[in-house]
Design a protein around this nucleic acid. Structure first.
Length: 299
DNA sequence: CCGCGGGCCTGAGAGC
DNA sequence: TGCTCTCAGGCCCGCG
């Protein structure tokens, strides 16, 4: 499911019921998700006040008063839902045990805010891990992550530098979390279309070559266009509450709307909407993933 | 080091 | 209706 806009949407949904609240009870309802839970996973969460809920790339990070950080990744199919007690429950009781179809509800937090927070993940590619905040820099899951695409440090110069010398395709480079952290298949396709760049283009062409091995690595106009398109598509998607494909929903259960704004993703055979283009959207496979694009206006 | 392909899981949807 | 097959938004790992 989730790329950066969806994770950010989830963060905004969880923030009001998590920040400032204490985790009264934490429950892992099976031994593992993608990885086994740490033996002290529950112990390090229970009784802790969540002092802040942040996001890094596609990770949610809950700061705990103890100095630990709860790292959460939604994988492909992970989602959270918030169950508030004022629906039809008496004060002090929780909705969760009566929720139906709970097969894939793997983690449960009962918060002092009065809400139950349920993590559901059918495919179990998601995971959670508690780490000490002062060990964040050494955390293998976070090490090597590239810049935040909506952060100040991500600009054409930085993208060009990261792509300089890369023989792989622009599509593959943008999916590489070391180059820029938070894009997935959908938003890469969309950003490439909006910048009119071909997914097959060699990544290194975002940087100037220099002469006789000297200089070069400067951003081309293409790099500038691509950075602008990444900003636009991510910001628009966040504004729309993310995209809803298959069973992905916001924490409230509502659907995101950005999927209606896709220009190419899952639109094979449709007409390209770029002004004056009118080409046909095509699909092919790159690195085992579907790429959607318009060969007429993406060069 | 780099780039690619396989694998992890379950469920939805298409086609028969 | 039900079976089988393909594909899915992520990311780690091992190979060449």
């Amino acid at each position: 499911m989730p790329e950066l806009p969806e994770v950010e949407t989830v963060r905004r949904g969880l923030q009001p019921v998590m920040e400032g609240a204490k985790i009264l009870t934490a429950e892992a309802r099976r031994a593992d998700l993608r990885f086994p839970f740490q033996p002290d996973f529950v112990a390090r969460l229970q009784g802790q006040v969540v002092t802040g809920l942040g996001r890094r790339a596609k990770y949610l990070m809950a700061d705990l008063a103890s100095g630990d950080v709860l790292l959460m990744h939604l994988g492909m199919s992970g989602s959270f839902r918030v169950i508030k007690p004022d629906d039809d429950t008496a004060p002090g009781e929780f909705h969760y045990p009566r929720a139906k179809d709970s097969t894939h509800d793997h983690v449960l937090f009962r918060m002092s805010s009065g809400a139950d927070i349920v993590f559901n993940d059918p495919r179990r590619f998601g995971y959670m891990k508690v780490i000490a905040r002062n060990a964040l820099d050494e955390e293998p899951l976070l090490r090597g992550l590239g810049p935040e695409p909506l952060g100040n440090e991500f600009d054409a110069a930085m993208l060009a530098h990261a792509c300089a010398g890369k023989a792989t395709s622009l599509k593959a480079a943008l999916l590489d979390q070391r180059v820029v952290a938070g894009l997935g298949n959908i938003y890469v396709c969309e950003a490439l279309h909006r910048s009119h760049l071909s997914p097959r283009r060699i990544a290194a062409t975002l940087a100037t070559k220099g002469r006789k091995g000297v200089g070069g690595g400067e951003p081309t106009d293409h790099a500038q266009r691509l950075v602008g398109a990444i900003h636009t598509v991510l910001n628009d998607a966040i504004k729309a509450g993310g995209s809803s494909l298959r069973d992905h929903r916001q924490t409230s259960g509502e659907l995101g709307y950005f999927q209606h704004s896709f220009k190419v993703y899952d639109r094979e055979g449709e007409k390209c909407t770029t002004p004056g283009c009118g080409g046909a959207i095509k699909r092919f496979t790159q690195n085992g993933r579907s790429t959607f694009w318009c060969p007429k206006c993406q060069k």
